[in-house]
C-alpha cells in the first residue's frame, strides 16, 4: 500500500513537472497597410495591383505576415493605415472590433490567446474588396508550453505548414480598385488563385509550402481561405486527418479524408502522415482554380515529397 502510494506520488510529481505552465509571453506586432503589387510568375502570370500588410513600413507581403502566440500569451497588434481609404482589422473568432481606421490613423487590438488553433485575420470593409485586394493573413496559436502539438495534450506533429489560399479577379477587381475606380462587386470571376502569395508553379517549389519530410513523420497543415471561392483540396499519397474545421475542434478518432472543402473565410487544421516514399501532388479539384488565367497548374497546387 505504502509502496503504491509512493509510486503514485512520483507519477503525480512527474506529471506536474511535465505540464508545468511556461511563463505566458507578451507578443507585440505592428502591421502597416499599404498599396503594392503581387506577381504570379510563369505562364499565365501577371503583376496584380494589391493591398497588403507589412511589419515595417514599406512594400506589403502576400499573404500578410504570420502572427503566432501560445495559449495564455498577451497579444497586442497595432494596425497603421498608410493607405488612402478606410481599413479595419478583425481576427475571426478572436477579436470583434471592426471600427474603421482612417487613412493615416492607427488602432490597437489586444487580447489573450485563449484557444490553440488557426485563425484568419482580414479587413472586413468595402464589400469584400479590401480582402480581395490581399488584406488577409494567418494567426496560429499553439499550446501554452509551445510544444509541437495541435493543442495541449492534442495530436503531435513533426513539422507544420501554413497554407493561405485566396483568389483575385484581375480585370474586374484588382485593375479597377488598384487605380481608384469603383468595383462592380456583383460580378466576380477570379482568374488568379494565390497559394501562399504565389501561383502554383512557384508554390510547387516553395519549401515553406510543400509537404517535405521523411516517412514516419507527420505534418500539421494549417489552412485558411482568404478568398471568395470554396477550395476543395485533394491530397494524393495519403488521407489526411481532420483536427479542426472552421474553428470547431474535432474529437479523436478523426475523420480521414482525401478531399477537404475550405469555404470562404474557412479554416482547418489537418494532419498528413508521411506514410510512403514518393512524389505526390496536392491540388484543388475545381476546374479553373488549378490555373493562372487559364494556364494549367499555375493555380492552387503544391507538392508532397516523402523520403
Amino acid at each position: 500500500m505504502q509502496w503504491q502510494l509512493c509510486i503514485r506520488l512520483i507519477v503525480i510529481s512527474l506529471i506536474g513537472c511535465l505540464t508545468l505552465p511556461t511563463q505566458a509571453a507578451t507578443r507585440t506586432y505592428t502591421l502597416y497597410i499599404t498599396a503594392g503589387s503581387l506577381t504570379v510568375n510563369g505562364n499565365g502570370g501577371a503583376t496584380l495591383s494589391a493591398w497588403g500588410y507589412t511589419q515595417v513600413a514599406g512594400t506589403p507581403t502576400f499573404p500578410g505576415p504570420t502572427l503566432t502566440a501560445n495559449e495564455g500569451d498577451s497579444v497586442t497588434i497595432t494596425v497603421i493605415n498608410n493607405h488612402n481609404i478606410n481599413h479595419n482589422f478583425k481576427i475571426q473568432g478572436v477579436t470583434t472590433d471592426t471600427t474603421a481606421i482612417a487613412p493615416g490613423a492607427n488602432r490597437v487590438y489586444s487580447f489573450t490567446a485563449s484557444t490553440a488553433g488557426t485563425y484568419l485575420y482580414y479587413d472586413t470593409l468595402n464589400n469584400n474588396i479590401n480582402r480581395e485586394m490581399g488584406l488577409y493573413g494567418m494567426l496560429w496559436v499553439g499550446p501554452a508550453d509551445g510544444s509541437a502539438k495541435a493543442w495541449t495534450n492534442g495530436p503531435a506533429y513533426s513539422f507544420q505548414r501554413l497554407w493561405v489560399v485566396g483568389d483575385m479577379d484581375k480585370p474586374r477587381w484588382n485593375d479597377v480598385a488598384g487605380s481608384g475606380g469603383s468595383v462592380s462587386t456583383s460580378v466576380y470571376k477570379p482568374n488568379y488563385f494565390i497559394f501562399n502569395g504565389k501561383g502554383g508553379f512557384d508554390a510547387m517549389n516553395d519549401t515553406a509550402t510543400t509537404i517535405d519530410g521523411g516517412v514516419g513523420q507527420t505534418a500539421l497543415v494549417r489552412i485558411i481561405n482568404g478568398g471568395q471561392f470554396s477550395y476543395s483540396l485533394h491530397f494524393h499519397g495519403n488521407h489526411i486527418q481532420v483536427l479542426t474545421l472552421n474553428g470547431v475542434r474535432q474529437t479523436s478518432p478523426y475523420k480521414q479524408l482525401d478531399v477537404i472543402n475550405i469555404p470562404p473565410l474557412g479554416t482547418a487544421d489537418v494532419l498528413y502522415p508521411l506514410n510512403q516514399l514518393g512524389e505526390y501532388v496536392m491540388h484543388v479539384h475545381t476546374a479553373q482554380m488549378e490555373t493562372a488565367n487559364g494556364v494549367y497548374l499555375n493555380g492552387t497546387v503544391t507538392m508532397i515529397h516523402m523520403h
Partner: peptide, 9 residues
Amino acid sequence: GDSTVFADY
C-alpha cells in the same frame, strides 16, 4: 491548351 477559356467556369 492553356486557353483563357479555362480561367472562367
